[in-house]
Amino acid sequence: MKTTHIVLIGVIAIAVGVLIMASGDMGTYETFAEAAKKEGTVKVVGYLSKDKPMEYNPEKDANSFSFYMSDESGAEKKVILKAAKPQDFEKSESIVLTGSIKGDTFVATDMLMKCPSKYVEEETRVKAAI
């Protein structure tokens, strides 16, 4: 057997090992109920409850934005995002939160929101443009 083959096998072995390790970092998307049972940070997908209050008062705390989100099972919970209120938040279609449950609220350290493509609501927009 050539040295290169041995090296190759070695590298593949390490690669498989590292990939298995790396996949340990992956999680699954949780609901609030599941998140409550878990320790540490989790990801929760859901939708903004548009009828519930959103609060961002930078004079009180510039790094706290609260709103309500319902997860994929339909359960609703208050969320506190430890950051400023993102622009166009009202328009978000779905939200992915990273954080953990603390008491009654979900405290999010990071949030990714999916905004509607430009193609939604276009009827109203075309009208507005005419």
Binding site: D25, M26, G27, T28, G40, K43, T98
Partner: peptide
């Protein structure tokens, strides 16, 4: 099927 999520701290990962 259950949906996998990316690591919670992507950058550290």
């Amino acid at each position: 099927a259950e949906q996998l999520s990316p690591p919670t701290d992507v950058i550290a990962h």
